[in-house]
């Protein structure tokens, strides 16, 4: 690959240096310009959330006067706290259940030979990649016969029986742990659960954290699932459904809608800053291991 071009094409360094400075400036102008565009939506959302409802219907960009009123109304006129509590219940329980069921499964798939392992693994991959709508009808019918539609349970409980994407991701992490450690633990008299608890889990903490964060955010952001299962029961609405149906069910103006939008963004960003590393590493790992 190094056989590109010819040596005779060596150039003098001076214009190259000058070119580099120009290049540097150019790149940073593009970077900053785009960054402004990327930030602008959030800025506009914030500005509108600070306007009075009369202003939001007029052609103004800058609030005058500034008011926190929309935020007060978001909490007093809208069951925002309950929406957040529901989202949190969904995300926390789904994540906890997923971990309890998927870690052992991923461990077996990564470390133990058995007949049918290949078929099982392929099934997990297909289950992970298949659009959920393909199986939506029978699963909906099932929960409906159990009388559990109208709650978040149909979205939480299945995680007790493993989540395909998480199993896959965890297995990839477990594979990176050299098998010598597990072997040593086995010689010390540990069973498979012992090996998992004493060796694999401590060593795979970053991977487990990344998987948990994925699950958490997927559940927190989920719209399709709650729309299917909870739309008839406002008591169980997560924040995604609440916000999406806000303009039609409460008919609020843009000001209060934007206030709620801001409030929905904030927790996610806070969590991101606390778990930034895990996050970015996790994302990179899902894709790069291609």
């Amino acid at each position: 690959m190094t056989a590109v071009g010819t040596r005779s094409a060596l150039r003098s360094t001076r214009p190259r240096h000058f070119g580099r400075v120009l290049n540097w400036i150019g790149q940073h102008v593009v970077l900053s310009g785009l960054a402004v565009l990327f930030l602008a939506p959030v800025v506009f959302v914030f500005l509108t959330s600070m306007m009075t409802s009369n202003q939001t219907l007029t052609a103004t960009i800058w609030p005058d006067p500034w008011t926190w009123d929309n935020y007060v109304r978001a909490f007093t006129q809208v069951p925002l706290v309950r929406w957040f509590a529901n989202s949190a219940t969904y995300a926390v329980l789904a994540t906890a259940f997923m971990l309890a069921s998927s870690i052992p499964a991923a461990y077996v798939l990564a470390r133990i030979r058995f007949r049918g392992a290949n078929i099982l693994f392929t099934a997990i991959i297909i289950a992970m990649l298949l659009p959920p709508q393909v199986t939506a009808v029978p699963i909906y019918v099932m929960w409906s016969k159990l009388g559990m539609t109208g709650t978040l349970l149909p979205l939480i409980l299945p995680n007790l029986l493993g989540d395909a994407f998480s199993i896959f991701l965890l297995r990839q992490f477990f594979l990176t742990i050299p098998s010598e450690y597990a072997d040593a633990a086995r010689i010390d008299g540990n069973g498979e659960w012992g090996v998992l608890a004493r060796v694999i889990i401590p060593m795979a903490k970053p991977g487990i954290a990344a998987t948990a964060i994925f699950m958490f955010f997927n559940s927190w952001n989920d719209y399709y699932g709650p729309l299917l299962y909870t739309s008839e029961n406002e008591q169980w609405w997560p924040v995604a459904i609440g916000l999406a149906s806000f303009r039609s069910s409460h008919g609020g103006d843009w000001g209060i809608t934007m206030a709620i939008t801001m409030l929905v963004m904030v927790p996610v960003v806070i969590i991101f800053f606390f778990a930034q590393r895990t996050f970015v590493e996790g994302i990179a790992l899902t894709g790069v291991k291609g």
Partner: peptide, 13 residues
């Protein structure tokens, strides 16, 4: 260790 996941695949896939 695998039983829940297998049951999950059977029931939900």
């Amino acid at each position: 260790m695998l039983a829940p996941a297998v049951l999950g695949l059977a029931l939900f896939f």
